[in-house]
Design a protein around this nucleic acid. Structure first.
Lengths: 343, 343
DNA sequence: TTGTATGCGTTATCAC
DNA sequence: GTGATAACGCATACAA
């Protein structure tokens, strides 16, 4: 038994048969005697034969591998999505090649190149915050190569997207704050390069307007970094600088909401009595905080799973990108917890 | 320009040269005229030529891909490790195939099979909690195939491991609690199938003994699941059932520590005044809690990075598994925060 | 300086 | 029932 994996040829030699016979016997082709099949399988087992997926890929021009390009792995929501992707891919016999862009456009581009080089069958992407142009995607899409975007939907006509209803989630969160009697609701907004940031901001504005509260621009605070420190600082500033003291913060992410909580605590404001706070994403830690943080829950696992199903269906021609529904919107759910419940 | 990627042959046809010349020109081999090189590269560019990594893999019996088998992706520590792995792999020109076992032995085994089938160059593994036998690893290792284990080190002689000093981390945490005047320190221990659980328990015991406090078996509570609910329940029980009321909890993970915090809060015990709490891993949320949770920080990113470096060095023959240092131990760092500081 | 032949592992096609 | 051959895309030993 040679080092470095037995091949079909090795089995053929062992049994004095041709490689083609072995190949057919292993796949139970008709027209091979049962006796031969038996012997072949026995020897294959004995030699610890394992088909070479690389050779297969070369022959079929199909690798049964999909690529995932994601801003960061160390991120509760994204890791949840990855988990969903991996789950479906594994169950349908596909491998997952993972690449993180670290929010850098350059790495996004080089990852795509490497992946195409590796003959992957399709790509799942959530693009970086740095990404403002999309030709590195359209170039590939135009060749008929399947790409499915998740969470962050690019400004590409006809792109296939799987996302959550950020607008509605944001609307619900804001409406909830209003229903709890908060009047001066500040929104901590994300970077304008991401459609999700804009949708969330619009949901906030519309919820206010629909409830007869004018949405004041000065109550929308830009937090492009999305870090705890950033929002803590912003909230701290805004608590004193705004004409009417804010009595609620709806933050476009959970980490930022924690920053807001801290700033309020530092200002000796009681949560939820004097200030209400709601985050977005419903990260694991929300229910561990004191008070527990209300947040808009996003179905990360489901998003990964759905996106993968769509991608694989396209790859396997069960779906036609030309005629299919191009945007899949998943529902969010507001988790009302102590940080925003006065009644 | 044909659909489905230009190949070397296409360029050859275009320029009336042989495929070998193209191959050599693209790689700047000596003995190809500069003029030819120039033309070849120009046409390659024009045709959007991209080398087929699959064909290369087949030829070289090297895929420049490594596999990662991990219990779960949605886990702060593991996601940090993955990030480190991905970082180094990418910088050294390797792809990363990701597979999560979901703590199931069966999936661990099938993942290895698939990966080997895909001719990966090496594997990084943190095995599942279910895994009690290791022949699926030794079988492969014995063929000279490179595997590096991280975090969870298996009972395989000569296996190559990258781990943290769980014993020392645990020792430090316990010693810290003692130094803060806590007397009845309970340890919430992990599943005995994992060496890390045993090491952490031993660190706890030794720290007590070294400080002249006898380690009582009834003060070591088994929490095999590692969930918040589990430890909350256990702590709640133990607060009343033990002869001397516990005044500190050292938990082998952070989630469990949060459960302990909650149980203590429910019992109206002040943290850190009446009860001290320390966790293990220093997850992101530790510093967001109120009070901030003390925890033993593990260098996850570094662990992933080091493990990958070692694996790639073995693959590239820069390290010899026979003669090298087989266990790499990284240091932990105790993050002393409010949950355990009385003075 | 360039071309030809061969092989990496597998399977589809045609032949016997 | 089984075998021989070619092809997937590329690199290399050997020729010229």
């Amino acid at each position: 038994m040679k080092i470095g994996q037995a091949t079909i040829k090795d089995i053929a030699r062992e049994l004095n048969l041709s490689a083609s016979t072995i190949s057919r016997a292993l796949k139970d082709y008709p027209g091979i005697s049962n006796e031969t099949k038996r012997k072949v399988k026995e020897v294959a087992e004995k030699m610890n034969y394992r088909p070479n997926a690389i050779a297969l890929s070369l022959r079929k021009s199909r690798s049964f591998t999909i690529g995932v390009i994601i801003p960061e792995v160390v991120h509760f929501f994204f890791s949840t999505v990855i988990s969903g992707i991996e789950e479906i891919a594994q169950s349908r016999g596909y491998n997952v090649i993972l690449s993180q862009s670290n929010e850098k456009l350059e790495r996004e581009i080089s990852s795509i190149e490497t992946m195409l080089s590796n003959q992957i069958d399709g790509i799942l992407v959530s693009y970086s915050k740095e990404t403002k142009t999309f030709d590195h995607f359209t170039r590939v899409l135009d060749q008929g190569f399947p790409i499915v975007f998740f969470d962050r939907a690019p400004a590409i006509p006809n792109a296939i997207n799987v996302m959550v209803d950020d607008y509605q989630g944001s609307f619900d969160a804001t409406a909830h704050l209003i229903s709890q009697g908060y009047k001066n609701i500040v929104h901590l907004a994300g970077p304008k390069t991401l459609k999700i940031s804009i949708d969330r901001e619009n949901g906030y504005k519309d919820a206010l307007e629909k409830n007869g509260i004018p949405a004041k621009p000065s109550y929308i605070i830009s937090c492009p970094l999305g870090t705890l420190e950033e929002s803590k600082q912003m909230v701290s500033d805004v608590l004193t600088s705004l004409p009417d003291r804010p009595d609620a913060f709806f933050c476009c992410n959970d980490i930022g909401a924690v920053g807001a909580m801290m700033a309020c605590r530092d200002a000796d404001l009681k949560i939820p009595l004097e200030v209400g706070i709601v985050g977005f994403s419903d990260w694991q830690f929300c229910s561990m905080l004191q008070p527990q943080l209300s947040s808009v829950s996003q179905p990360g696992f489901l998003m990964g799973a759905r996106a993968t199903e769509v991608l694989l269906d396209i790859i396997e021609k069960k779906l036609d990108p030309e005629t299919m529904e191009r945007t899949l919107v998943l529902e969010t759910k507001l988790m009302e917890r102590d940080s925003s419940k006065r009644f």
